[in-house]
């Protein structure tokens, strides 16, 4: 059986190596790169199923790599791997066309699910339309305040910032956020952001 090729771009050797091990035992073929520059100059993308990209690298940032990748036709889906607190950047990446983002440290199920969905999405692009329709439908169930909270979430703002902006308590924002996730049938924040963008929710700014 042909193994799907997954590329890992991370400057931390341990992460790169361990992720490679995990993915290989999970049935993927893995190519690793320790910098964005190296990856961009040496790799064709024709056989790649998915790219795991560390957003926080010294020489070329993950976002720059992503921009370079999406310029090329038939670019594979990109999954952004972020450190803690990099949510705004992750959201930016999603808006720029990344498939998903995953926060370090992660459990194997999270990353493997994301990879599988990315590959599936890439193979069956039509399902994207149906998911957009579904997202649009779900969006109608939101209250005004929930839509506001959603648009701030799409912005990538933290709960307490949203609370400050709306003049309500962070606790209330959390409640709204949970409702939004539930109503939108979002599996994760990145999923929510992706759906919201698909349904045409624009970030506040």
């Amino acid at each position: 059986m042909h193994k799907v090729k997954v590329l890992v771009v991370d400057d931390d050797k341990a992460v790169r190596d361990s992720l490679g091990a995990l993915l290989e035992v999970s049935g993927f073929s893995v190519d690793s790169y320790d910098s964005g520059q190296e990856f961009l100059t040496h790799r064709d993308l024709w056989d790649v199923g998915c790219v795991l990209l560390d957003v926080n690298m010294p020489d070329v940032s993950g976002l720059e790599i992503q921009q370079e990748l999406t310029k090329k036709s038939g670019a594979p889906p990109i999954i952004i791997i972020t450190g803690f607190g990099d949510i705004p950047m992750a959201v930016k990446a999603i808006r720029a066309g990344a498939f998903d983002f995953v926060e370090k440290p992660f459990v194997d199920k999270t990353i493997l699910d994301s990879i599988n969905r990315a590959i599936d999405q890439n193979r069956h692009p039509k399902s994207a339309e149906s998911s957009t329709a579904e997202a649009t439908q779900n969006l109608k169930n939101l209250t005004k305040r929930e839509r506001e909270v959603l648009s701030y979430l799409v912005e990538g703002l933290q709960n307490k910032v949203i609370a400050y902006q709306l003049g309500i308590s962070p606790r209330t924002v959390e409640i709204h956020r949970a409702r939004v996730m539930s109503k939108m049938q979002a599996k994760s924040l990145s999923h929510l952001v992706r759906m919201a963008l698909a349904a045409g929710i624009a970030p506040i700014s």
Binding site: A14, V15, A21, K104, P105
Partner: peptide
């Protein structure tokens, strides 16, 4: 970073 590696 190391935690992610350990988990992996």
């Amino acid at each position: 970073q190391p935690l992610t590696a350990i988990l992996n």
